[in-house]
Write a protein that binds this DNA or RNA. Structure first.
Lengths: 114, 114
DNA sequence: TCAGCATATAAACATATATTTATATTTAGT
DNA sequence: ACTAAATATAAATATATGTTTATATGCTGA
């Protein structure tokens, strides 16, 4: 028996039980600004001020979305001096974004727009 | 060069460009009732009345969510007589649900709750 | 301890989304 | 053509969510 190539094994395949968690997670990914934040953390941690700078959003708004991402466990926080750094909690977060992007592209390929 | 094992190849890897589409798709998956509907269509098409029956939701609510799923291209519709049948537009939709479920489980495994 | 920067939090507001209730549309059968 | 069933649509309502504005908290260096 060959080992599972994927980094993650589905255990039991998708029951009604955890749909609450799934929708909770999907909600966190349902905002474009939050997606941009996750993408900005692709190559490593960033301080809030760096994120504010690169995203062109107000500081409170960035903080608010980061808190949401933390609540969903998608990011982790570490204080270093006066700065606070955020990073993706797991690399698999990006895999999921790619999967979403892939499906969106696939669906749009058939029709032209959503 | 070996063929790609996955059913879908990421083409270019996740740019800022399509985040609008991605968030649009994620929004559709961010409601528990819609997730339950998609799951109910796992094994093939179902009429609206069947879905109303099995989900225990009001008929207008089911219709409303189905329309939303159709708008997102996640389901397709076919009228047959007085009945209207909905089905998943692509099997990959289920793959994505599994991926979401997998990540949710992974994140929760580290901490206890969201 | 004070001043200034970095970040968070709270309040106020606007907008979007889910749900219910009521009604319209479409189809099949008679 | 009428009726009943299946589904969709619209209006009304409630709730949630994103954004802005204002203020508070925490850290650092003088």
């Amino acid at each position: 028996m060959q080992p599972d190539q994927r980094s993650e094994s589905p255990a039991e395949s998708l029951s009604e039980g955890r749909l609450g968690d799934v929708s909770f997670l999907a909600k966190a990914l349902a905002d474009e600004n939050r997606l941009r934040l996750l993408l900005a953390l692709r190559d490593g941690q960033q301080s809030v001020s760096q994120l504010v700078e690169s995203m062109g959003l107000s500081q409170p708004l960035v903080s608010h979305h980061l808190r949401e991402l933390k609540r969903t466990l998608l990011v982790e926080v570490e204080r270093r001096g006066a700065f606070i750094f955020y990073r993706l909690s797991r690399p698999e977060v990006l895999d999921l974004l790619r999967a979403l992007d892939g499906l969106a592209g696939m669906l749009l390929a058939a029709r032209k727009n959503f």
